[in-house]
Design a protein around this nucleic acid. Structure first.
Lengths: 197, 197
DNA sequence: GCCACTTTTGGCAGGCTATGCCACAAACGG
DNA sequence: CCGTTTGTGGCATAGCCTGCCAAAAGTGGC
C-alpha cells in the first residue's frame, strides 16, 4: 500500500510510451528487446517484467481496455438496439485508455504497419471477440456457436481494429471514436449499401 | 527437370498431412519442432527446409491458394456485381487446394482452436486482404486508402477465415464453399438484417 | 542508529524458434 | 566410374521467453 520496498526506476506509463517510440522508430521487427532495454535504461530481465512479451509493449494497454467490454454489454438495457449497444460498448471499451493521443496514435500506427502484430493470440483479444459473439447470439436468440454469431464477432473485431489503425495513419480527428462508429455503421448496413450513399 | 539428384524421403503433401496431424494431436503450442521432426522421421533442419516456420506447417497451403485471388479479381468482367465477384473470387481462391477434405478440416480446426494462429502476418495473408481492398476501391470509385475500402478488406477476410474455421469445427457439409457464401452474404446485407430472416 | 521486511532489479541458465553455413549422402547422366 | 545435382543434417548463432536466485534500495519499528 505505502511506498514500502525499493521504488521503481520509472513509472509504467512513461516507460510504455518510451519503449513504444523505440519500436516505432526502428521498426518492430528490426528492434530487439535488448535495444529497447538499452534505450529505456533497464536490463532485459526487468523490461520483461514490465512487458511479459515484446507484443505486450504494443498491445498491453489495448488488451486491458478490452477486458471491460463483456461487463458493459451485460449491463446494457434490453431495449437498446443491437447495433447501438455494440457501438457504444465498443467505443467505451477503449475510450478509457488514459493515454495521450499521440501515444495512442503511434501505438495503433505501429500495429497497422506491422503484419506480425495485426492480430495476436492474447486472451483479452479472444475474449473481446467472444463477448461480441455471445451478445449477438443472446440478442438474436441463437446459440453462441451459430455460424452467423461467430462470424459477426470476427467481422466486428476486424472492423474495429482496422478502423483504429486507419485513424492512426490517415485520420485527422483527435478522437478515433467517430471513425470506429462510421466503420461499424458501414458493417451494419453492408458495405455496398454504405458506398452507395 | 528430370529425376536428377537425390530423391526426397517423402513427398511434400503427405509430409504436410503427417506433420499437421502431429500438431493437431499434441496441440500447436505444446508441440515443438523437434517433436514433429521425430514423428515424421526428419531432422529439425530438414523439417525447416520443408516448412520455413512452424506456422507454415499450418498456413502453407492456405497461403499458396491466397496468392491467386488478385488475378481472379482482375479478370472479372466489369458487369459482374461487386459482391458476386468477391464471393466467386474468394471461394475459387481456396477451392483449388488439391487436398483431401479431412486434412483441410484438421488444418482449419487447428487454426480455429489456436489463437496464436488466427491471423498470422504472412505476406500472402496481407496481400489477400489488400486485393479485396483494392477491388472494392476500384469498383466504388474510391481510393485504396479510403476508410471503408480498408475496413471492407479486413471485414471480408475475417468473415472468410472465421467461416472456414467454423466449417471445420461445426460444419456438416463436405465442402466449405456454402458456409463461406452464407457468411459473406450476411456480411453484405448486414448481420442484423440477416438474423431477422 | 540499527535491524527486519518488502519490493524492485538484474544476472545466469536453459528451452524454443528460426537462419546461415558447410559437409556429407544419394541418385542420375554421360 | 566420375562429375553434377539435390536432399539431408550437424554446428553455430541470434532472438524471444521463463524460472530461479541474489543484490540493491527503500520503509517502518525498536
Amino acid at each position: 500500500m505505502t511506498g514500502r520496498g525499493r521504488p521503481r526506476l520509472a513509472d509504467a506509463k512513461t516507460l510504455a510510451a518510451r519503449a513504444l517510440s523505440v519500436l516505432d522508430l526502428h521498426g518492430y521487427r528490426d528492434c530487439t528487446m535488448s535495444d529497447v532495454a538499452a534505450e529505456v535504461g533497464l536490463s532485459i530481465r526487468t523490461l520483461h517484467r514490465y512487458f511479459p512479451t515484446k507484443a505486450d509493449i504494443v498491445w498491453g494497454p489495448v488488451d486491458t481496455s478490452f477486458a471491460t467490454l463483456r461487463r458493459r454489454l451485460d449491463e446494457t438495457p434490453i431495449d437498446v438496439p443491437l447495433q447501438v449497444a455494440l457501438r457504444d460498448g465498443i467505443t467505451a471499451s477503449f475510450a478509457d485508455h488514459d493515454e495521450d493521443e499521440l501515444t495512442t496514435r503511434m501505438r495503433m500506427r505501429l500495429i497497422g504497419r506491422t503484419p506480425e502484430l495485426h492480430s495476436h493470440g492474447s486472451e483479452p483479444f479472444v475474449r473481446w471477440r467472444q463477448a461480441i459473439t455471445d451478445f449477438v447470439a443472446t440478442r438474436t436468440g441463437s446459440e453462441p456457436t451459430a455460424l452467423l454469431a461467430v462470424v459477426a464477432g470476427a467481422a466486428v473485431q476486424a472492423t474495429t481494429m482496422s478502423a483504429l489503425t486507419w485513424w492512426a495513419t490517415h485520420g485527422a480527428a483527435d478522437d478515433p471514436v467517430g471513425v470506429v462508429c462510421e466503420a461499424l455503421d458501414a458493417l451494419e448496413v453492408g458495405f455496398t449499401a454504405s458506398f452507395a450513399r
